[in-house]
């Protein structure tokens, strides 16, 4: 069925693609030789997050409810003015160990009120929050775009560690020799702040945790900057996935069951095939 004609068509198509690729290859290589890529400031000065040890780390991680409560306090007193937490409802705070009454109080006293539309007047008003409400969105008028924090630890690579390093990394100026190579990058624009853990090196957020004791913890833990940062990171791991602990527990049960069931299935397979030469 394949005449010389058809065979040569196939060969030519293959040769065609290979030829264009070789052209592209040659241009890439010559481009590389003529203009070797220079290391950018981001590549040189950007740091990967420091390791963060949390109770929720690892395949069998679970939540430290005390730490989550502390982290929530940090969020409430430091972050909530600018950052929304829209995926969380006030009723979810029961996971942190608060009672129904406490949750109701937190909701009622929450500074940002729930917007309500007045059908008669055609205007937006506000009311107190109730437990079934989600945390109302926060709108920030200044420079920069404070992201919603509900999913931040999942929306960044190595998220919890990233948040912690970012919050504590403002003071980490680069090695002077390295800084000398990138004088442009070291000129921080007006209103921005240098932070090596941020992708673009200059972040619009001023350091939010400036001094020890900024937040007064109810359980008496000493509120150092590092402690507050760790606690709020742990809290944000919870906001990103409140069902994490349930998932790990279910997973352990499922995998153990499956190992047992697969073992039985293997035994059944051997039984069925006994003596059958293959």
């Amino acid at each position: 069925m394949t005449s010389i004609f058809l065979r040569s068509i196939k060969f030519l198509i293959g040769a065609g693609f290979v030829f264009v690729l070789l052209l592209a290859l040659i241009s890439s290589i010559t481009g590389l030789i003529k203009e070797p890529p220079k290391q950018t400031a981001e590549q040189a000065l950007h740091k990967h997050p420091k390791e963060l040890e949390l109770e929720s780390n690892g395949p069998l991680g679970k939540f430290d409810v005390g730490q989550l409560q502390r982290g929530f306090k940090v969020y409430k007193e430091v972050c909530a003015t600018c950052h929304s937490l829209h995926m969380i409802a006030f009723r979810n705070l029961k996971d942190l160990g608060y009672s129904d009454a406490q949750v109701k109080k937190i909701a009622k006293e929450w500074a940002m009120k729930q917007p309500v539309f007045d059908e008669k007047a055609g205007t937006w008003g506000e009311r107190d929050n109730i437990p079934s409400d989600r945390f109302p969105k926060v709108y920030y008028a200044g420079t920069g775009n404070p992201p919603d924090l509900s999913l931040i630890t999942k929306a960044r690579h190595d998220g919890a560690a990233y948040v912690h390093s970012l919050l504590t990394g403002y003071g980490e100026k680069p090695d002077p020799a390295l800084a000398a190579k990138f004088p442009e990058a070291m000129k921080t624009p007006e209103g921005m702040h240098f932070n090596p853990y941020f992708a673009n090196l200059n972040i619009a957020m001023p350091p939010p945790l400036v001094s020890d004791g900024q937040v007064q913890y109810d359980d008496g833990t000493r509120a150092t900057v590092d402690q507050m940062s760790t606690d709020v990171s742990a809290f944000l791991v919870w906001t990103a996935e409140p069902t994490l602990q349930v998932r790990h527990q279910a997973g352990l049960a499922v995998v153990i069951f499956l190992l047992f069931a697969t073992g039985l299935a293997y035994g059944a397979y051997l039984t069925v095939w006994r003596g059958m030469k293959h």
């Binding site: 069951f257 499956l258 047992f260 069931a261 039985l264 299935a265 035994g267 059944a268 039984t271 069925v272 006994r274």
Partner: peptide, 16 residues
């Protein structure tokens, strides 16, 4: 008695 393994495997799978 070797049949029990096959039945056991099938029942465990059904339960799962």
């Amino acid at each position: 008695r070797r049949d029990y393994l096959t039945y056991a495997a099938a029942s465990v799978a059904a339960v799962g």
